[in-house]
Nucleic acid binder design. Structure first.
Lengths: 341, 341
DNA sequence: AATCAAAATGTATGCGCTTACATGTAAGAA
DNA sequence: TTCTTACATGTAAGCGCATACATTTTGATT
């Protein structure tokens, strides 16, 4: 069906040179006289030749392509990250192939295989480097395997190993500070809502627990303040409404979707926001400002992290094997809105 | 960097057969004795051989890959469409390559080239088949060019031509009915908010205009009810607030983001929703329920359309050249929530 | 004009795979 | 046992390109 028809031999014949010369022209080699270059380019311009990437790849074993793996693209955070990454990669002449893995190990593994089989030059994993069930045992095994083939970059996840590089945001600190500021404003019962056991979710939980302990709560009490919910506005609301002895005046959520569920809960309870209850979301996504009241949220600088990640990829791919630090951290920023005092 | 090392010759040698036999085993040819098949599979299982897709593609000129082009993946509608498409394509053994084109013609054209150069078996365009400025002159030229190479499928867009297939939703009708129902409830001043000149946006505008005319409004008046805004919650709100002589008791928006901007406007004005003003969004996305009050929205059945599109692609790719209708329509559904009576 | 270095161009090989065609082999028929 | 046939396997060509190496051309120098 896809018939390119015109190949390098055609161009060579039509412009009266050898295929080597055509190849040189295509690749901008400097060992071509201006005259023949022009001659060849004219022919190409006329008949519209595009090199066959398969043939190129076969010889060079590279396709100038980066694979991006996300658990699901139908998520604000993921899709915006992909958009940033793609924009940045294009600038450097790289295309990207997307893999939508789902949250389960098997999907991730299969999609990683798929991407590798397409001879990507590097692999980017966005978020969720853990299996959905929280197990970590061999969850990272497939990542290490991938890293034997191409450099692997992880955005907001963490796996140590040869040829693996991570860019993370300081989630632990951000949640700790958010919780601490609530405490400072006199909140007594703060809970943390999350739907995930991902690396990043765990960091947030740690930040929450640390803040709770810092005001004298027992470890168990701090842990009990963590409530697992589904990543769905109405389900969060309903789950909280169903918890009869839930008494809280502060909520921190691991993403904005959940935070909005919390807002709906508070509204359903007839509480005043932020007087009766403060709520802080995460990711500072469009969702945060779509709600009324608009939700205070922690911005994790996705764009910055993505840009930085691409820069580092290029350092490895283009440039020499200059040593890169295997992990960099970016601080988060609290964006105050109407759900906090 | 990416060293597969083990190739078909290795496997052939290790299992004491010819490369042709290995190839037959890999491709499930029936002309292989059970014994040798097993022998080869054992070796493959042991050393982990994966065929080089370049080499395969060179010979076969297909990569079992479909290209998906979106103006931007950082958009609820687009990203969910991509997720549906990808899920469906995988089931049929096809991978997908994503192209993020931007809304301008040049980007679309370049990205289309990129995707085609990757030897996709088919191209899917999601939404926005028009140039951002509303011009249509040669906007569709690149699509027709692409269609000469592979079958092109358009989701929620419209281009006629050989080898081009479109799946659209009945936007015109949906908006007409939404507006009509508002009118029936006694609304006098209904406006339509949009940020786009896309095919689908134009259909919605037509539906609005038709509804207005049906209650005796002049053509000009109907046209004046269409207000162009930016696709950003706060900017929509501010733009509406800035229109001093805007008096309306009904708003229909071409997507949920804009609808929420309208909600914010109404709230800022101190209006009661839906008593003083009714608001209807479009796409029935997560945004619609993230707002308070939750926004009535028109569901355009993205999942259904995507599934259907993939089915049709497969009919063409796998099956024979059975004739497909070049355009199918799916009706929309109004999901009533708190912003309408 | 003769010489030589540098620049331009051409030739030929290999990348890993699929597949048409050639060859070999085992089972059934005579 | 010998021939036939169907089935199993092997051989080799070609997909389109980049590139090392070989060859030719150019132009500067003597």
């Amino acid at each position: 069906m896809n018939k390119d028809a015109v190949n390098i031999y055609d161009i060579a014949r039509m412009s009266g040179v050898s295929i080597a010369t055509v190849s040189r022209v295509m690749n901008g080699s400097e060992k071509v006289s201006e005259k023949t270059r022009k001659k060849v380019m004219d022919v190409i311009g006329k008949v519209g030749y595009t090199p066959n990437v398969f043939a190129q790849g076969l010889g060079l074993n590279t396709m100038h392509t980066v694979g991006i793996l996300v658990p699901t693209i139908a998520d604000q955070y993921m899709s915006s990250a992909v958009a940033y990454l793609e924009t940045e990669l294009i600038k450097h002449g790289y295309d990207c192939i997307l893999g939508n893995s789902g949250f389960d190990m098997e999907g991730k593994q299969k999609k990683t295989e798929m991407l590798l089989s397409k001879h990507i030059d590097s692999l980017i994993l966005v978020g969720s480097t853990y299996a959905g069930d929280g197990s970590d045992t061999n969850a990272t095994e497939y990542i290490r395997a991938a890293a034997k083939r191409v450099p692997v970059f992880i955005i907001n996840g963490n796996v140590n190993g040869e040829n693996i590089y991570a860019s993370v945001c300081e989630d632990e600190k951000a949640v700790y500070e958010a919780a601490t500021s609530m405490l400072r404003r006199g909140r007594k019962n703060i809970v943390f809502l999350t739907d995930s056991h991902s690396y990043s979710a765990n960091k947030k939980k740690n930040g929450y627990e640390r803040a709770m302990k810092s005001v004298g709560k027992a470890a168990k009490e701090a842990k009990d303040g963590i409530i697992y919910v589904e990543n769905h506005i109405h389900r969060v609301r309903d789950q909280l409404l169903a918890m009869e002895n839930l008494k809280c005046d502060g909520i921190i959520a691991s993403n904005d979707m959940i935070a909005i569920g919390a807002v709906k809960y508070a509204l359903a309870k007839g509480m005043d926001i932020p007087e009766d209850i403060e709520i802080i979301g995460y990711n500072n996504s469009t969702l945060a400002i779509s709600c009324a009241p608009e939700v205070t949220s922690i911005d994790n600088h996705t764009e910055e992290i993505c840009k930085d990640t691409v820069d580092r990829i290029m350092k490895i791919l283009d440039g020499g094997e200059e040593k890169l630090s295997h992990k960099i951290s970016v601080p988060c920023t609290l964006i105050a809105r109407e759900t906090t005092m």
